[in-house]
Design a protein around this nucleic acid. Structure first.
Length: 431
RNA sequence: GAGAUUAUAGCUCAGUUGGUUAGAGCGUCAGUUUGUGGCACUGAAGGCCGGGGGUUCGAGACCCCUUAAUCUCCCCA
């Protein structure tokens, strides 16, 4: 699918320098990075230093002497590092997709894993909002094909920045977003409380309340938000971007599950423009996809002015959702095509020869691992979802023949060894 | 990082206010049935009751510690 949209595959190492990862995911994120203990700490010559360093670790610091590598926390930052390192060789805009596990030192629980797979797609080196449109299209198409009903929520960090500008200054943005992001869970009143705790005055809280009460269709929301934020340069810009994307999607696709959500904040520090989140409807599960635009991601790695935008699929959670919705067909499990019964030494040898022919013809088959009663061999075939049994008993052995039995219909037929091709076509016949 | 719950047979779980030999269903194995499965019946095997300590005449059960899992909050995919 990603290839269809012009993306190339890429893989990056599971390990990164701790320094590369720290500070990119917010304070909470930093705590959740899996750190790797350095080797060689037992070296006597370095033990004094190691002990001193460890005392610092106990104070909550990350000291290179103890740990300088870590497992990747997501796929975006390692990708940014890769782009920064290889910028000379890449053609921009560079589009890649990546399916790999990531690790978070979290307490595992429902829908939350210490190790889980992400499937990312990013574009670096383009400011065009067409990329956003493309990603929304990818999300919508992918989940439609998986038959999972979702809501694709979108917001723009610029609106949040504008809101902060009007409510006490840009430095308040993190505080404000952390609070309003919780509205779904704790409700408006609690959010207002939290905002006050975080140092906002009555007037500012009131303003945010108005912002949070924006509702209706995407167009209506846009209009209401514009009344509040269009006075600021950033607010105006953010609203324009959202408007463009919404209109484009509406005009050129049949996607109907794109919704504006002005409370959507998303934790990752580096987002600057559009932010996305995908939630399955009718299933209680956190977001199963997320992403956004970061106008200067590689700047942190010494390559300024490279904008990017990307999305991520939470593979394990999507799997969980599909399982909960019973979207996996029951007959996925399929064993070999044929089980040859083992009815003694000579018969087994004959069966073995037969199997060579079957395999050459592309029929998967196996022989029961030991001589056993019919009963047992039949039950084995059933459990392994094997469709055919081949039986060579004493009679067949002397006749140079074998019995082919279809285990689901119970119909069986005797073939001469020379007529093996007929048997094969019987096996391959779609049932 | 904060909190709750759970841990008993291969699996899912019972086990009463502490009391003799710790049970069931499923699965496994054997038999009814020595060359034709799915069903049924009969029987058998299978347990350091997560680990360590304590209370008690007596602990699967009560207390403390420990480990692990599950779940909630925080945060996130």
């Amino acid at each position: 699918m990603f290839v269809l949209y012009g993306f190339q595959p890429l893989e990056t190492p599971a390990m990164e320098n701790l320094e590369t990862l720290m500070g990119k995911y917010g304070d909470e994120g930093d705590k959740l990075i899996f750190k790797i203990l350095n080797n060689g700490l037992e070296n006597p010559a370095k033990q004094q230093k190691a002990k001193e360093d460890f005392l610092q670790v106990l104070e909550g610091k990350n000291i290179k002497g103890i740990t300088e590598r870590a497992l990747r926390y997501d796929l975006t930052i390692p990708f940014a590092r890769y782009v920064a390192m290889n910028q000379g060789q890449l053609t921009f805009p560079f589009k890649r997709y990546q399916v790999q596990p990531v690790w978070r030192a979290d307490r595992p629980q429902k829908g939350r894993y210490r190790e889980f797979w992400q499937c990312d797609a990013d574009v670096v080196g383009s400011l065009s909002l067409l990329n956003e449109v493309d990603f929304i299209n990818i999300y919508a198409t992918a989940f439609r094909e998986l038959k999972v009903d979702v809501e694709i929520r979108i917001n723009n960090r610029k609106l949040l920045a504008a809101l902060a500008e009007l409510c006490g200054g840009v430095h308040k943005m993190i505080d404000i977003t952390i609070a309003i992001d919780k509205i779904d869970k704790i409700g408006l009143e609690k959010v207002k409380e939290e905002l006050k705790q975080r140092g906002l005055n009555e007037e500012e809280v009131y303003f945010i309340e108005k912002y949070l009460s924006v509702a209706g269709t995407n167009e209506e929301k846009l209009e209401q938000a514009s009344a509040l934020l269009a006075d600021t340069e950033t607010g105006k810009k953010g609203l324009e971007e959202l408007g463009y994307i919404n209109e484009f999607i509406k005009k050129n696709t049949n996607i109907s599950n794109l919704v504006f959500d002005f409370t959507l904040a998303r934790g990752l520090n580096y987002y600057t423009g559009s932010i996305f989140e995908v939630k399955a409807t009718n299933v209680s599960m956190g977001s199963i996809g997320g992403g956004g635009r970061y106008d200067d991601l590689t700047g942190l790695f010494g390559v300024p002015n490279l904008p990017g935008v990307g999305i991520s699929f939470g593979v394990d959670r999507i799997f969980d959702v599909m399982e909960e919705l019973k979207l996996f067909p029951g007959n996925l499990e399929k064993g070999s095509d044929v089980l040859c019964f083992n009815l003694g030494k000579d018969a087994a040898e004959e069966a073995f020869k037969l199997m060579q022919h079957l395999r050459t013809a592309g029929v998967s088959c196996e022989i029961f691992h030991e001589e056993a009663k019919f009963d047992k061999q039949f039950k084995y075939a059933e459990k392994k979802h094997i469709t055919f049994a081949i039986i060579i008993g004493a009679n067949e052995l002397t006749e140079g023949a074998f019995i082919l039995k279809n285990l689901s219909t119970g119909v069986q037929q005797t073939f001469a060894n020379s007529a093996i091709m007929e048997a094969i076509s019987e096996i391959k016949k779609p049932s």
